[in-house]
Amino acid sequence: MPTLNIQTNVPLDGVVTSDILKDASKAVAQILSKPESYVLISLRGGIPMSFGGTEEPAAYGELISIGGVGPDTNKRLSAAISDILKTKLSVPSNRFYIKFFDVKRSDMGWNGSTF
């Protein structure tokens, strides 16, 4: 059930978003050692956003998972996602924040129930 939500001020017109979604999905599944069939990635572009007082390319992400997150894993996830954003959207690594959430099974719904 890992879920990665990314918002960026970069317009997505002309961007092959499926490549970003595929790369992020694979990275999240691999790093968290979770089945990719449970990974959800969302990407919203063209969001008004200021980082450091400028509107240059920037992004914010949130990764939610039932377990698997922690200091070492979070560093690896941050690096992988940052690399995808830099390569695919030209968002510099120093203009991207990501917050990690480790949630209880009872706090995530799926298939009409909870995990």
Results as ranks from 00 to 15, higher is better:
residue 7 Q to S: 15
residue 7 Q to H: 13
residue 8 T to S: 11
residue 10 V to A: 05
residue 12 L to F: 15
residue 13 D to M: 15
residue 15 V to M: 05
residue 16 V to D: 11
residue 18 S to E: 15
residue 19 D to I: 06
residue 21 L to E: 08
residue 22 K to L: 00
residue 22 K to N: 04
residue 23 D to E: 12
residue 23 D to T: 07
residue 29 A to F: 03
residue 31 I to E: 04
residue 32 L to F: 11
residue 33 S to E: 11
residue 34 K to H: 09
residue 35 P to E: 01
residue 37 S to G: 06
residue 38 Y to A: 05
residue 39 V to D: 07
residue 40 L to A: 13
residue 40 L to W: 02
residue 42 S to E: 05
residue 44 R to V: 01
residue 44 R to Q: 08
residue 46 G to N: 14
residue 49 M to C: 01
residue 49 M to F: 05
residue 50 S to P: 08
residue 52 G to F: 03
residue 52 G to H: 00
residue 53 G to A: 01
residue 53 G to H: 00
residue 55 E to P: 03
residue 57 P to T: 04
residue 57 P to H: 00
residue 63 L to N: 03
residue 65 S to W: 02
residue 67 G to C: 12
residue 67 G to L: 05
residue 68 G to L: 05
residue 69 V to C: 03
residue 70 G to W: 15
residue 71 P to N: 12
residue 71 P to T: 10
residue 71 P to L: 13
residue 71 P to E: 14
residue 72 D to W: 10
residue 72 D to F: 13
residue 72 D to Y: 09
residue 73 T to R: 12
residue 73 T to Y: 09
residue 75 K to L: 02
residue 78 S to K: 04
residue 79 A to K: 12
residue 82 S to F: 06
residue 83 D to C: 12
residue 84 I to K: 04
residue 85 L to V: 06
residue 85 L to K: 00
residue 86 K to Q: 10
residue 86 K to F: 09
residue 86 K to E: 12
residue 87 T to C: 11
residue 87 T to M: 13
residue 88 K to S: 05
residue 92 P to M: 05
residue 94 N to M: 09
residue 94 N to Q: 12
residue 94 N to K: 14
residue 97 Y to H: 14
residue 99 K to N: 13
residue 99 K to I: 13
residue 101 F to G: 10
residue 101 F to Y: 15
residue 102 D to L: 13
residue 102 D to G: 11
residue 103 V to T: 10
